[in-house]
Write a protein that binds this DNA or RNA. Sequence first.
DNA 1: CGTACGACCTGCCCGC
DNA 2: TGCGGGCAGGTCGTAC
Length: 287
Amino acid sequence: MPELPEVEVTRRTLLKFIKNKVIKNIKINNPNLRFKVPADFKKIIIGQKIVNVLRRSKYILIYLENNYVIISHLGMSGKFLIKNNYDKDFLKTSYYSNEFSSKHNHLEFLFSNNFRVIYNDPRRFGFFALDIVSKLDINKFLRKLGPEPLGRNLKKDYLILKTKITQRTIKTLLMDQHFISGIGNIYANEILFMAKIKPNKISSRLNLVEITRLHLSINKVLIRALKLGGSSIKDFKSLVGQKGRFQNEFKVYDREDLKCLRARCSGLIVRVVSQGRASFFCNECQN
DNA sequence: CGTACGACCTGCCCGC
DNA sequence: TGCGGGCAGGTCGTAC
């Protein structure tokens, strides 16, 4: 599923359900994810209480009482599902789903109050790793990440500085996690539409007005998506928490040949593949 | 060094 | 109906 909004929704839901709970057992059905589940994973985690669940970029960080942190990434198709076989009311909530194939339930965490957190990931691009709290700032996954895009973390001056020194396209740059962390293909397209900038525009050619719009659009698009619970597309419906609704507000993503939704624009949305990813934009109003 | 691209993996959808 | 090709919300290792 996941770009920043989806990962953040997942984090919040996980936090709500597992904070201060104790992991009683873990079942590893398939350790062969993007990286193999560490051999000592069970040994380190079973019996531990969850202290906190945080997010950095698209990584979910599950803090344990013993100062270990589970670092989880959902890849393209990873999702957490929460089940409680002993509570019939629980089954009625949106946190439970059986819309996915249990064939890809790779990990199952059993908690003290009889519910299970299941990690399901058909493509297995996601993974679980472990590190220690004090070493997180030098962790190989987290160390090189660019600033978080929300709030005051992302400074306009940073955008001005960084866009100036590269000949890459602005969309490629937005999706580069070392530049800004958390933005993927959907939100890069939507952000650039709002900012009225063509995805294939060379970063260094952006002017101050465009960078100002870009800065604003990054925040606006992600905040709006977060508010709607992220985006749920295709068959990826069953992330933890309720289905997202931002897909209903897509202006360009997956809208090839459809009318541009900007007021007074008569353009059509085009789809162009560059560097292996589909870009969607309006030829009329994005420059 | 910066940048582009293939590889990793499964499932779905479309055209023949 | 079956099969092949292309597509999918990500990121890393490699090659230039």
